[in-house]
């Protein structure tokens, strides 16, 4: 494999029910910094049906090029046609880097694609950078149960492939003056055949936890000592207009459902405020929240890891502090209410 024949950064765009999903724009924010550093083009490839009127948005959000494959068989994610089409596109255009979001789609198609192309893939990166001289993609992720971070490269194969967590980066601001090229690719019908068939979809709104879209996340961990104590976190979250998250420990103890779990094996969040209560801050947890705008921690252990990533921390007893905080916030709310 001649590495120098591979140039450019690609992101995998994603659509759901025919609408471009925001993870596509988050990926462009990741891809833009890599492409600029390497001095190459940033392209998005997006597969779906009836997307033509939306793809310009990908340019406004940072893409230089958009490859669109539009076909009814691509309306919903299906491994066979997606893998065939993406393999063909990679072989034709040879990007050096190809990144996708770690959604169920990304986490399914990327290992399939990497196995077909016999190249390296790194899952759930929390950091992506490039070494300009060697043009290697530096893929950083929590490793070995989340105790440490590892930086991984794909030295001799291309494209270097990686996934990043949804919400791990904010999309770039929309810039409607950006210019780019949109290329509609056509393929032989055979390419769209699939061994599997989608028979239906059972919508379940509860499958989506509000925690991922919340501006404020109030998260609890082992320090809460009992599932019932999550009640005060829900109260606090309501006062702050947010949602409740939890560490893996709290979920494993059965204190709160998995949909609230923040971290490597749960959700990634980037709220304006992340309030960590009784959470020690294992690397695996930090991987899911360290990009939050403001981090506040309450923990009685002065050596807790969480304080190292906090903008504000209180070393103390959460059972004293949280009720006081709730009381003070209620007073403030009450005054605001009177003022209106």
């Amino acid at each position: 494999m001649k590495l120098e024949e591979y140039r450019g950064v690609w992101t995998l765009g994603e659509q759901r029910d025919g609408r471009i999903h925001t993870v596509s724009y988050e990926l462009l924010a990741w891809g833009r910094s890599l492409a600029d550093k390497l001095g190459v083009e940033l392209a998005t490839v997006i597969l779906g049906h009836n997307l033509a009127d939306q793809v310009q948005e990908l340019i406004y959000r940072g893409a230089d090029k958009v490859y669109v494959v539009d076909h009814p068989a691509l309306a919903h994610f299906s491994v066979d046609p997606y893998a065939r089409v993406l393999t063909a596109l990679v072989r034709e255009y040879r990007p050096e880097i190809f990144i996708a979001s770690a959604t169920t789609t990304g986490r399914t198609i990327m290992p399939v694609l990497a196995a077909k192309l016999r190249t390296g893939l790194t899952a759930d990166c929390t950091g992506l950078d490039v070494d300009v001289e060697s043009r290697q993609l530096l893929q950083t992720r929590p490793a070995i149960g989340g105790n440490v971070m590892a930086t991984i490269i794909t030295p001799n194969h291309r494209p270097a492939m990686a996934t990043v967590r949804p919400k791990s980066r904010r999309p770039l601001p929309r810039d409607a003056s950006r210019k780019g090229e949109i290329i509609f690719k056509r393929f032989d019908e055979k390419m769209f055949e699939s061994r599997t068939r989608r028979l239906g979809f059972i919508r379940d709104e509860t499958a989506e936890s509000p925690v991922q879209d919340a501006d404020v996340v109030v998260a609890g961990g082992k320090g809460l000592k009992d599932g019932r104590n999550f009640d005060m976190l829900f109260e606090l979250a309501e006062l702050l207009g947010g949602a409740v998250g939890a560490s893996r420990m709290a979920v494993d103890m059965g204190w709160i459902p998995y949909s609230h779990q923040i971290g490597l094996s749960g959700k990634t969040v980037t709220p304006r405020l992340y309030l960590a209560i009784g959470i020690s801050g294992a690397v695996q947890h930090l991987a899911g929240m360290s990009s939050s705008e403001v981090i506040v921690a309450i923990n009685k252990d002065p050596d807790a890891n969480i304080f190292k990533v906090s903008d504000f921390g209180i070393i103390g007893d959460l059972f004293e502090i949280v009720p006081l905080l709730i009381k003070r916030l209620r007073e403030i709310k009450g005054k605001e209410g009177e003022g209106k």
Binding site: T103, R195, T196, R197, R198, F201, I202, R203, A207
Partner: peptide
């Protein structure tokens, strides 16, 4: 079990 619900899929 995917984002937003459950997809029913048939495979050989």
């Amino acid at each position: 079990a995917i984002e937003g619900g459950h997809e029913v899929v048939e495979s050989p």
